[in-house]
Amino acid sequence: MNTSAPEGGPNDSVEALYRRLAKLDPSEPAPATRQAIMGRARQLASSRAATDTRQTPRSPAFRWGRTAVMGALAASVVTALVIAPRYLPSGSSPARAPQAHPPRSSAANRALQMPPSATSAADMRLAPGTPASPEFAVPRAALGPSARAAAAAPAPAAKSAMPAGTEDTAAPFAAFSNARRWNRQANAALPPAVNGSLSAVSEPAQQRLRQAAEAGDLAQIAVLASQLPDLNAPDAQGRTAVMIATLHRQTAAVTALLSLGADPNAADVNGLTPLQAAREAGARDLVAALERYGGH
């Protein structure tokens, strides 16, 4: 390579001299180092192979039949999610902040009582007081038994997942953290095709999350995080929302994303991790935040 080297390339005298003398250096990695590296490589390869095996389709007929059924189901779910909210009255979702509505009469309140199968804050698996997520929340009626069980299960305390010393910064996001966990449990119980279609729909939302991270828009981060199954979707350069927030020195956004479960170690296409980027930028507060959440 080195075609544009200032003083030659492979034939450069200094480079040739370096290579000749370097061959005399008998130093090499310790055998234990080699073994550890190859052992880890084998371990990761076998875990990937196991994942691929689990995803292997059974037969062409089964695949086509399942694709048709699930495709139709997914299309109807997506249609319902995208179109239905437009025709619903604006006050029909109790998940919205109560103070946003004028006082209603008791008759009006009775009229707004939703049946058990209707979309509600509980159906969306959002903690009380959290903003609604009309685009991606799945109505309880559309869920299978296991999903309903997951939705009905009490949420574990979010605080327990937080590293020590982060409660003050991360506390406002505890409710969103719970909502994310419940959403993940419920979505995991959906048929794969439905879940896949939700992921496809969430692509623009992933982009909005990265934009919110760049701008340090905590409210938007909280809302999007409650809707998205994965907070680590990278852009074309492999940068996750955490990385983008780090590069723009949005410390509060980084802390919020990490408290919501984002990966502190997701590297970009160049192998640069958020912690390394923060260190290179000399941003001590960011380094501290990333280290608290296991960044390395």
Binding site: T33, I37, G238
Partner: peptide
């Protein structure tokens, strides 16, 4: 050396 090649192995699917 270990850290570098561990990272290569870990990040390989994202290369």
């Amino acid at each position: 050396m270990q850290e570098v090649w561990f990272a290569v192995a870990r990040e390989a699917p994202r290369f």
